[in-house]
Design a binder for these strands. Structure first.
Lengths: 187, 187
DNA sequence: GTAATTTATTATCATATGTAAAGTGTTTTC
DNA sequence: GAAAACACTTTACATATGATAATAAATTAC
């Protein structure tokens, strides 16, 4: 659990009691490469922290597999639109490598908000940071070319090329694998 | 202020004392059509509630004016990436009509969090909802055609066509005005 | 109210990306 | 380790969108 608390401490401090409370509603999981951490159709009731490994959130649009986002070790994975609405998500979470994950029970966490104000504040800060990330992603999608987005991705996460199949990277960039191949062949 | 409190009540309840505290750090403004509520380059230190009128968040990319988002009466406008980082925003907020706005001082608001837990909780809820909106916007930009995005926009906000210049709508959709003209002429 | 400016449309041509199909290389399965 | 499945690249052609320019329509300024 230590990695998780190091991550959380980056957002705001937690009392020892709050840490114990979070530990109590969390459990460590090992997930095999290519298997689903959460399948499509389930309601998101868990906040996952990636200790080791890399994940993607994906869904199907007209039978085409679309990668909405990648998440790396040392970060959390959440399907916000399901977690905060309580509705089933049409998105799944798949691990792209054999992975170690800490699963935090979300309804348990939200209950802790009342008695542990530092926890509520901490997760408010985490979700505010996530909001910033999403705004920046929109900017990237709205007015950068596919080529620019690809360059930005490999700058941001150079090892993504080695760790995720190009077909997933392509749909993440909003293009087809064929088009990504073309972009890559220009270098 | 009543419209503001009706809006806030949709997210979670506020005590009378909390309402008074918010009113104290808020002020009503009248803004002329086409003028900036917040110019580019300023740090976002205010959360605006639109009583009447319509706003856009915009910025310049390579001298081209880009509309990042529209906001309508009965909703708030915030440049999250600046509000939560404290960094100057490269985005401005412009009113597209003569407008009535309630300006909530953000640092004043954040100070209220300590003594008014209902306020912290309320704004956590508001920002969580904003996070959902951004996730959905990403999905729209990532895997819908410009034509689909245009249809979705007029379904979502039919009067946007009458109230915002098409050039702004075009850049919001991630296309040029010429391309938007083409899309529109197909109907 | 007229002139000047801005906004929107249309046409033409260029470019980027999509689709489909074929071929090559890699991984998985038994 | 061979066969099958999958991933990636390349080519050819189709389509959508961009860039530019000309024109028309609407708005703004005086």
């Amino acid at each position: 659990m230590e990695e998780l608390f190091e991550y959380l401490a980056r957002y705001s401090p937690l009392s020892e009691g709050s840490k114990r409370a979070i530990a109590k509603i969390s459990q460590e999981l090992h997930i095999r490469k290519n298997s689903d951490l959460q399948p499509i159709g389930h309601t998101c009731k868990t906040i996952y922290f990636l200790k080791k490994g890399i994940a993607r959130i994906y869904y199907f649009k007209d039978d085409v597999d679309i990668t909405e986002s990648f998440s790396f070790e040392g970060h959390i994975v959440v399907r916000y639109e399901s977690l905060f609405t309580g509705k089933p998500s049409k998105k799944g979470i798949q691990m792209l490598e054999d992975s170690d994950v800490i699963a935090i029970n979300a309804s348990g966490l939200f209950k802790l908000y009342d008695r542990h104000r530092d926890i509520e504040r901490l997760f408010r800060n985490i979700f505010e940071a996530a909001l910033i990330d999403q705004v920046n992603r929109i900017e990237s999608l709205q007015f950068h070319t596919a080529d620019e987005r690809y360059k930005a991705l490999i700058k941001d996460a150079p090892d993504i090329i080695k760790r995720a199949p190009l077909k997933y990277i392509a749909s993440y960039l909003g293009i087809t694998p064929v088009s990504l191949s073309r972009i890559r062949s220009l270098r």
